[in-house]
Amino acid sequence: MTGTLEGTILVGDEFEAVEGRLHVENGQIAEIEEIETDSSDIILPAFVNAHTHIGDSTAKEAGGGLSLDELVTPPDGLKHRLLRAASREEKVEAMRRSVRFMESTGTAAFLDFREGGVEGVEAIRDALAGRNIDPVIFGRETAAAMHAADGFGASGARDSEFGDLREAAREANKPFAIHTGERDPHDITPAMDLDPAFLVHMVHPREQHLARLDEEETPVVVCPRSNLVTNVGVPPIRELADRTNVALGTDNVMLNSPSMFREMEFAAKLADVSAEEVLRMATTHGAKLADKEYGVVEEGRPAKLLVLDGDSDNLCDAKDLVRAVVRRAGEADVTDVLL
């Protein structure tokens, strides 16, 4: 893509509001020119959704009132029964529609824990055919699924020791990530002992786990809407962010829409963190986990961008643009997505 965008540009890691023109050449941000402009658009980095399960897109809002174990524990949790009951074609089409929604709401990449072994990995790749979003697929259950995917996504240290699969991922030079601390703190130490690329959830860390995060700086992905829905509590986002990079994920499509707007708003209103920090969780920090060079608006970076209408009925008269983007922007405010 080559062209120009005008408006207020949220530049760099601090999202400095710069009025001007952004020049794109061959998919790269070539220049950010500070000039007066009549445009009310807000230009910011596209999102990175750092934890999803889009495979269960056929089961939206199933299982209301069930516990986390009843919903998702393999092999007989409701999610897994519904996945077995759905045809491959149904699952691929449902995933394709979730991907399309993520693209339309400004998500440039997503990191997905994909069930179903090698066949599950192949199905999500079919769902992504012709789309512009960047996937990072974590195969599950077997080493073969890891080799077919971009990495391995472990269910949790309470389910298995995962030592052999961790070593297989290391030998394949692929990331290993793991759910932990979702129900209670008891699986956090064995999860951290596996030296994962990142940890998912960390709702119940104890002081020794926080101290270890401070020392080892293992990134954490939090999914606060999901944790609330499954009634396991909410992650201590402030305490985690004080010690390591924290990214945001929307978790199961069964439980939540894969909307980073909704996840940002919830996190910002839940936790004692600044709007700038929440926006970094949704962009820069997720991009680092995905090993992407975008997630920030700077010259020389890929032009993975989201454009919002700053004069929409929802965003007009905002006194703090970053706070408005994080706490109130939504799909209706999107005017363009560059992926």
Rank of each mutant, 00 (worst) to 15 (best):
V118G: 07
E141N: 12
N173W: 03
D13L: 02
S226L: 06
G295C: 06
R280D: 00
E217T: 04
I178E: 00
D41Q: 15
T73P: 00
E207M: 09
T230W: 04
N49W: 09
D13N: 10
A168F: 03
L22A: 08
E293W: 02
A143D: 15
L305K: 08
T230Y: 10
L68N: 08
R262M: 06
E25H: 05
E103P: 15
T37H: 07
V322I: 05
D336H: 05
P219L: 00
R84C: 08
A290E: 07
V136T: 14
I137Q: 15
V273Y: 04
V136R: 13
L199Y: 03
R301E: 04
P205M: 04
N245M: 06
H209P: 03
N227T: 02
E265K: 10
E161S: 08
E182G: 00
L306T: 03
T105K: 09
N252M: 09
G106F: 14
D56F: 10
N26F: 01
D187Q: 12
G120I: 13
K60M: 08
F176G: 00
G249T: 09
V337S: 05
L66G: 05
L270S: 09
G20P: 00
L199C: 03
V72Q: 04
L83E: 10
V220G: 01
V48N: 06
R170E: 13
N49R: 12
F113D: 00
T52H: 09
S274D: 07
P190K: 08
R21F: 12
H186Q: 02
E61K: 13
V72H: 05
E293Y: 02
A143C: 12
A287D: 07
S67T: 15
S155I: 09
K91F: 13
V118A: 07
I32G: 03
D291I: 08
E141Y: 14
R96W: 14
I178R: 02
E215Q: 05
A94H: 14
E90M: 14
M260V: 06
L22F: 11
S57Y: 15
L128Y: 04
F101L: 15
N173I: 01
N231V: 02
P175Q: 07
H179T: 00
K79V: 11
D320L: 02
L194R: 07
D41E: 13
S274R: 12
D150W: 09
P219G: 02
G181C: 01
A275Q: 08
P45K: 01
P135R: 09
G77N: 11
D291P: 02
T218G: 05
